[in-house]
């Protein structure tokens, strides 16, 4: 088993800016396929769905709904079968 960290990519706001977690599509413990939406984020300009870069199981969410995350900040971790 290994763990992949999912970080908030640039969403158009400049580095250092934040996006807010609207809601999580995937709960802790749920399995995801690569490309499944993990979380919906809000910036001042739009809503963004962040997909999973890998298939695996979501082990931890680092930001609760309505909380702000900085670009590059950790959103969640996905456990991947080696």
């Amino acid at each position: 088993m290994s763990e992949v960290e999912v970080r908030l990519p640039e969403l158009g706001d400049e580095a250092g800016d934040e996006a807010r977690v609207a809601f999580w599509y995937i709960d802790v413990g749920e399995e995801v396929e690569e490309g499944d939406d993990l979380v919906q984020m809000l910036t001042d300009k739009a809503t963004f769905d962040v997909p999973s870069p890998v298939a695996g199981r979501l082990t931890v969410q680092l930001a609760a709904e309505d909380k702000a995350v900085k670009v590059g900040g950790l959103l969640c971790k996905i456990e991947v079968k080696d």
Partner: peptide, 13 residues
């Protein structure tokens, strides 16, 4: 939770 934008203003990364 996300009513600030209408549904068509959603982007997928």
């Amino acid at each position: 939770r996300a009513r600030r934008f209408p549904p068509w203003l959603k982007k997928r990364i």
